[in-house]
Design a binder for these strands. Sequence first.
RNA 1: GGUCCCGUCGUCCAACGGUUAGGACGCCAGGUUUUCAUCCUGGAAACGGGGGUUCAACUCCCCCCGGGAUCACCA
Length: 455
Amino acid sequence: MSNKTPTQYIAVRFPPSPTGELHIGNIRTMLFNYLFAKHNELTGGESDIYMRFEDTDKERSKKEFETVALEALEALGITFNHGPYRQSERGELYTKAIKTLIDTGHAYEAESSKDDPDSKVIRFKNPNKAVTFTDAIRGEISIDTTDFGDFVIARSLNNPLYHLTVVVDDIDMGITDIIRGEDHITSTPRQILLIEALGGKVPRYAHLPMIIGEDKKKLSKRHGAVTYQKFAELGYLPEAIINYLALLGWSGKDDREYYTTQELIEVFTLEGVNKSSAMFSYEKLDSINKHYINTLPKEELEAKINQYLPSRITLFVSNAPADVKDEIIHKVIKERINKWSDVQTICDTDLAWLENPMPIDKNKIVWKNSTIQDTKTHLNKIISLVEDVSVTDWQIENIKAVIWSYAEEQGKGAVLWPMRYSLTGAERSPDPFTVAYILGKDKTIERLESAKASL
RNA sequence: GGUCCCGUCGUCCAACGGUUAGGACGCCAGGUUUUCAUCCUGGAAACGGGGGUUCAACUCCCCCCGGGAUCACCA
């Protein structure tokens, strides 16, 4: 009596070309491969994930991009258990395959090579037939390969081209599922032709929808940040990038939006992938990133913000009492950022008043229907009220307490706006009590006095 | 242009023959002890068009239109 479920074996691959920093589209593709493989393990199957750099283009491939790609995957927590392989180091395999193809009449030497007149290119003898395959996302797709003609598979015996190397590697590694971008749909039939000629087993295919920019074209540099490195520089959290990317072209069975990688592994299936292209939204990414910032433990949040703080603010913060520092980081900065790089921006705008007094504009200090005379009176009153708060009692709640009833009596805007504006010289900033607290008693009175004098 | 893919709010996704077509981002309005931000509540906002099939179509079929991908000795 055995109720052992048959083990499902899956092998997928990450095949980036090290010709630039890792594109976000590549990362999404790798993520889906990863989730697919890991989900299979979770449901009792076995999976292998192969990492291989497709660097047959010697001109454009650079070692540094391999390093950068590996670092990105590590930062994102997308792992593999085989490789990294490098096609440039697997030449024998390809040469052998080319020879086999020629020997079996599936390929032949044709005209002279463009860049090497002494050698001849090798063309695949196209059987010119319609190839049909089943795409896990799109269903049956049928393409007549006659249009491809006898396509070139190698510049020479020792200089293979993309379609050949991909097929040889996929067969050699025993790849069972190829999950890649939609842009490869048209080239799938010719790869199937090659697989058949080499006697390999045709894998399952799944072609993911493209990620596009606002002009509906493939997402590229002109749309903004598109590589992991750029997103990392802007200060997005890996979990936010993963979460957002997963949502681009995939959805679970409900309206859920936030997933950890582990949760994605649990619910990910190719059935959840949809067919149409997805426009990349930096705003939505921001919003998801903010959500993750809010879930960060206190220490981690502080460390990160500190890291991005301009040096002049760092100086101020490091000299300030711990609770003032808390106030600045948690109440002022954290609430106003979507990503770490926003910290600098916020410091330049909403926190500009922190170190030095800002110029006061007479036209801005008076609240709506209030008058200069009234404003002067209110500032005077605030100064006297605030002076009664001792330095040891200088807390947000206490400052508020002494001013509040007066503000309610005179009109909150008429009292509080001039107070806040006098302290910050800014149309936008935290509330006046917080600002006063952060500034300390002396500076608060000093600024109130000088604003009053300028009227 | 040939071939292939795709077509629900501005955007990302739901609804897989019967719903007042749902959620999120963004936007707008109101509220939360002045501003901004945060947060809360509410609102506007979509089935590309035309034929079928069916008692019933966003859902199935056909045509059109629109968008995209691909057509290298790049990957």
